[in-house]
Design a protein around this nucleic acid. Structure first.
Lengths: 196, 196
DNA sequence: GAAACTCTACTTACTGGTTAGTAAGGTGTC
DNA sequence: GACACCTTACTAACCAGTAAGTAGAGTTTC
């Protein structure tokens, strides 16, 4: 057994978990190491031991998102485009139901001008990856004849990403937003509402 | 002449102008009275004289947005739906071109959980008004036969609002976002790109 | 097998800067 | 002299970040 190595990983990971929750509900500028340390039951400096600068923590957070998102995408590359879109919707719903969290790309682009350059670079890459994925769904849906829409797949994917990012934010003022948005996106793609 | 009254109004208004710029580029949590006072060339306490609490300033900012937006909407109630949509696009472009500002509703809903209740209430009302306007455009466009889309006008208006709000944020990482989004929304509504 | 070491994961204690907000006073205008 | 509009001077809280020390577990050396 190696309790030392496990303990290190565990605290490091728990810091990321708490920071993620704070990031998606309050934003990067509106949470402090105090929030994390009091939640974790340790002192402030313990967080600095694992992530010396807040920038380090921010970069680690986005990098973990990128890895997780890549696994999410990889895990369903065999699914039909329509099913992939439904997974996308499910992911969006999950954010909202978890303390009205919003999409990470929404936080990062909204606070973009105040973020350190290292985080801006990670945010750029993350947004690119999310956009590419949305575009691939629109492309595949047109290619296999399951989705029917005007314009290019590039623009349609972008529109879906932008609408869901904005929709998650708007949902905080009105919880009927997300269901209506999902129905409308399906309607624009000529899709039927799927059976459970 | 009434220089006293003008001076009061002028300083008060200039504080709002500077605060607005800071809000739309940095967010409410990421600007301070110091930012405003140094920009304005006065001391910190002078800002507190006009807006005792930061909450007061925030509420005044949103209320001014609401008045301005209402005037914007009223000023074009005689225009055709398609022209109203183009005005909406122009408004969006103007935000982006002004130091990559984003939509006020985007900031307010993203920082929603950290805002004081008075600002949350104003934000709710503001988002409602923006949404209503988008819905009315979609309704009028369907009614006069100029726009053709699936789904309800309520959902279509919501989708346009959400997409433009998210799109303004995403445009910070890639400036080609907004043009593509506008083209796609027109395509989904069966509209031709208007001539200048 | 025990003393000496090294490393991880913290702690206490602190610095310097920023924050919103207040209290009291000054200055010019009606 | 009353009021609008500021100033100086301050408080208390919070912020990121650092320095130095410590407890304990594992590792090395004789």
């Amino acid at each position: 057994m190696k309790p030392a190595a496990d303990a290190k990983n565990d605290t490091s990971k728990r810091i990321l978990d708490i920071a993620e929750q704070l990031l998606l509900t309050r934003g990067f500028n509106a949470f402090s190491y105090q929030h994390i340390s009091s939640e974790l039951g340790v002192r402030n400096a313990a967080i600095h031991y694992h992530y010396p600068k807040k920038t380090d923590l921010g970069v680690a957070l986005i990098q973990r998102y990128r890895r997780r998102f890549q696994r999410f995408v990889d895990a369903q590359h065999t699914l039909a485009p329509q099913q992939q879109l439904e997974r996308y919707f499910t992911l969006t719903d999950a954010y909202f139901e978890h303390d009205q969290q919003i999409c990470p790309s929404g936080i990062l682009t909204t606070e973009y001008q105040t973020l350190p350059p290292e985080m801006q670079a990670e945010a750029n890459a993350f947004v690119d990856e999310m956009r590419d994925w949305a575009v691939r769904i629109a492309e595949a849906g047109r290619a296999d004849g399951s989705m029917h829409y005007g314009g290019t797949p590039q623009a349609m994917g972008l529109l879906m990403l932008a609408a869901l990012q904005g929709g998650l934010q708007l949902a905080r003022t009105d919880q009927t937003v997300l269901p209506a948005l999902k129905i409308q996106i399906r309607a624009l793609l000529g899709l039927a509402t799927p059976l459970p």
